[in-house]
Nucleic acid binder design. Structure first.
Lengths: 130, 130
DNA sequence: GACAATCTTCTACAATTGTAGTATTTTTTT
DNA sequence: AAAAAAATACTACAATTGTAGAAGATTGTC
């Protein structure tokens, strides 16, 4: 499942709450995005075609529901980034997190705790549902 | 600077060592990639057009040199992913690192050390060159 | 029930991306 | 120097992406 930039916006809006109509989704878009209603519809139709979401009509109106979880989509995007851009290494990510993202000391510590915590629980979590 | 998937392959190959000819770059591509020589040339021309690399001819042959550092390109890709896909939060990245990437305990500890280390040196590194 | 608002489906069109062929120019080998 | 090998420039073309208008169907309102 490969989403384009514009498609990510739609999916993010849909994941916020669903089932949702095109109008609902449109309203939730970041205010910097100013798409015509028909543009939104076109994108939604394409997303349905890709099986990223389903469409169910009630009367005249379509309701959309995601067919992929946000978590799965995020992971797959991350994975493809790591493979393609970073050549499989994760260290640039850490550098990015700390330098570019300008994590505060507190956030850094939170991440350290998270890592330590995962160190203990990673095994059990292998089968967690999405 | 926005690179397409195919362009990432070329750039990664060029960053390995440069200046390089189209033929050099082609040889370095992952063996799963089987592009015609002219395909490589087309992509390179486009990358030159985007100012991602420069082209200098010695006689009949072009030598390419990156105009953006790998580090900068990686960071900008990461930033755009975090903004667009993850809505600005970095926690999914950590989860990805630990669960999807299946980091070993040792790697986790290395990351923890890295984070701790950065915690101390982040300040000085703010002006580091790329 | 007529008019307005809303929704849908179709069609469109330019830019970007993936992929490569052809024709021409250079360079390298016999 | 003639032939072969290699490089270049130009052209092409389908798929995907971003963006939206037009026309028709449905629904809400006075």
């Amino acid at each position: 499942m490969k989403l384009s930039d514009a498609e990510w916006h739609l999916m993010n809006a849909l994941w916020e709450d669903y089932p949702a109509t095109a109008r609902d989704i449109m309203k939730r878009l970041d205010s910097r995005i100013q798409w015509a209603y028909t543009t939104v519809k076109t994108m939604l139709t394409r997303l349905v075609g890709k099986n990223a979401m389903s469409e169910e009509k009630k009367g005249n109106t379509s309701f959309y529901t995601p067919l992929v979880s946000q978590k799965k989509a995020q992971r797959s995007a991350l994975k493809s980034l790591v493979d393609k851009v970073l050549g499989g290494t994760v260290e640039p990510i850490m550098h990015y997190l700390v330098e570019e993202k300008k994590l505060t000391s507190e956030e850094r510590h939170k991440l350290i705790r998270l890592l330590e915590d995962m160190d203990h629980t990673a095994e059990e979590n292998k089968n967690e549902p999405d």
